[in-house]
Design a binder for these strands. Structure first.
Length: 219
DNA sequence: AATGTCGACAACCGCTGTTTG
DNA sequence: ACAAACAGCGGTTGTCGACAT
């Protein structure tokens, strides 16, 4: 495409580096309420000084309700090894076979653990079956579900002040994990309800409940 | 106790494929 | 048919904590 591309955002005007808990909550809150139809305009609408790409990455890799965090199980590692053997570095394809895991996370695990572990074995793993994944019903990535709401050009003011440890709090969310809900077979339990519960929990934990009520009045 | 090194992981960068006007 | 805009992907880098010296 001959002319080259305009940069996706102005590097001088966007914040870079690690996300703060405040930014995370702002992003979560916005997506929960309005979805993410357009990543490029999302930061502006959400009042974030971030590139749309950065928001997307943060959401997909870290903030989605059903994203799994923590150590990979033996089974997951073996699945990665097997799929990498057949697919190569197609991280997103591999991720699609591991519910709740992201391509970025899988890539990191591969580069830091699995690659080294396999190196002494001369690369190839014995299993090389292509046709997959009895175990993988690919329940992954349901964030599109969130993507229904209409988005206006409004900039939503979400005042955030909490200093509490955001991730300690998220880690205690076990009972909300959609994975668990699904594994219990409660199919009719709607994703939206799950998301709302999850968001509500965050708000309560961070003392944002009042803010939310005010927001609703404003909409 | 201070400093250096290494590993893990979050985030960024740039490219590609797809969609849209 | 073409160009521009956009989302998504994979490679790479930066940062931070753990461990060794």
């Amino acid at each position: 495409m001959g002319k080259g591309r305009a940069p996706c955002c102005d590097k001088d005007k966007v914040k870079r580096g690690p996300w703060s808990a405040q930014e995370d909550l702002r992003l979560i809150t916005f997506i929960q309420k309005h979805g993410h139809q357009n990543w490029r305009s999302l930061p502006k609408q959400a009042g974030l000084l971030r590139c749309g790409k950065s928001c997307r990455l943060r959401w997909i890799n870290y903030l989605r309700p059903n994203v799994k965090r923590g150590n990979f199980s033996k089974e997951e590692e073996e699945t990665i090894i097997r799929l990498h053997d057949s697919l190569g570095n197609k991280w997103s394809k591999i991720a699609s076979h591991l519910a709740g895991r992201t391509d970025n996370e899988i890539k990191n695990v591969w580069n830091t653990h699995l690659k080294k572990r396999l190196a002494p074995k001369n690369g190839k793993t014995p299993q090389n079956d292509e046709s997959k994944e009895s175990s993988s019903s690919c329940s992954c990535v349901t964030s599109e579900e969130v993507n229904k709401a209409e988005i206006s050009d409004t900039v939503f003011d979400i005042p955030l002040e909490s200093d509490s440890d955001f991730w300690d709090m998220l880690d205690s969310l076990g009972s909300f994990k959609p994975d668990e809900i699904q594994s219990n077979g409660v199919e009719e339990y709607s994703k939206e309800t799950e998301n709302n519960k999850w968001l509500r929990y965050l708000e309560i934990e961070l003392g944002l409940e009042v803010t939310r009520n005010e927001d609703q009045h404003n909409l």
